[in-house]
């Protein structure tokens, strides 16, 4: 019984982790049809914000939950104004430009902090006991905060004025702008919020993984697969994609080791896209957020 709970906990953590690293990408992709190849670098910047702020003596919770999303959100708004907004409607060029941005950010961070690991911070929570097994308290915290984050995004989209305008812009930008909505501003805010969520995720993961200028590359493969398999709906897509792929990854990792877990994840995603080229939410839960 304890073993079952421990395994289920681990599985939930894998799913939550996938949802956490994908959510920022999904917001930007779902709202603006922009695939942000610099997503991994936004996560990386969130991580660096936490490490630098903690080393300067800021409380770790403040730096993770407030500073990381704030800093990366501001960077996101700057990036949108300077680079992305010239390229709306040209998906391929946006991809390439954000890839250039990704290299640029890696280059800048390497120049400032050096190529090796900066001083790390340790996870602030101890272990939790499940019967005979112990689990990381910080992993439990990440599961809870991912759930809160998803719920907060749902609340924002469903019940606030900003969410209403954003959904309107997403459905029909021309109609929204002729009704007096400044779509350019909505895009800017959306990109900033997506970047902020990425920054938060990167900051939260920094104590688990440490930070490196090139750490973005380890996240983006999984984040892309999750978002593309999930499809364009932000919340339903991210959740469905993470549950399916995270579940497969977790189960195969448990049976045959983490290497096979990743192979299974990739194969499942490719087969899924052959069956549903527009992702899970392209076929099911179409009307969902």
């Amino acid at each position: 019984m304890d073993l079952v709970v421990a395994v289920l906990f681990q599985l939930t953590y894998v799913i939550a982790n996938l949802a956490l690293i994908s959510l920022g990408l999904a917001i930007i992709f779902g709202m603006m049809r922009v695939i942000n190849l610099a997503h991994g670098e936004f996560l990386m910047l969130g991580g660096y914000t936490v490490v630098v702020a903690t080393n300067l003596g800021v409380n770790i919770w403040v730096s993770m939950l407030i500073l990381a999303p704030l800093v990366v959100g501001i960077i996101g708004v700057i990036v949108e104004r300077v680079l992305i907004r010239w390229l709306y409607g040209r998906m391929v060029d946006t991809l390439l430009a954000t890839w250039g941005l990704s290299l640029l950010l890696v280059g800048i961070v390497t120049s400032i902090f050096g190529a090796s690991t900066a001083t790390t911070v340790s996870p602030p929570l101890g272990a939790v006991r499940i019967g005979d097994y112990s689990a990381s308290g910080y992993e439990l915290f990440l599961i809870v905060i991912t759930a809160i984050l998803l719920f907060a995004v749902w609340l924002t989209l469903r019940f606030t004025k900003l969410g209403l305008l954003a959904r309107g812009t997403m459905q029909n930008a021309e109609m929204a702008s002729s009704l007096g909505v400044s779509t350019s501003r909505i895009y800017m805010i959306t990109f900033g919020l997506g970047a902020a969520v990425s920054g938060l995720a990167g900051g939260l993961l920094a104590p688990m993984t440490g930070v490196l200028p090139t750490i973005g590359a380890t996240y983006i493969a999984k984040a892309f697969i999750t978002v593309i398999s999930g499809g364009a709906a932000i919340l339903a897509g991210t959740t469905a994609g993470s549950v399916l792929l995270g579940g497969i990854n977790g189960i195969f990792s448990f049976i045959a080791g983490s290497t096979f877990g990743e192979i299974a994840l990739l194969l499942a995603a490719i087969v899924l896209l052959r069956l549903m080229p527009r992702g899970i939410t392209g076929r099911f839960f179409r009307k969902s957020l």
Binding site: A221, I225, I270, L273, R274, L275
Partner: peptide, 30 residues
């Protein structure tokens, strides 16, 4: 076969092929 016969659009294609590359990277490293 999976990409073209699934009629995956070109932007997805870029991301999928990139993902395959990165998975190779992390697998062979291990």
């Amino acid at each position: 076969y999976f990409i073209f016969f699934g009629r995956v659009s070109d932007v997805y294609l870029g991301v999928i092929t990139l993902t395959v590359t990165l998975i190779f990277f992390s697998l062979i490293r291990r």
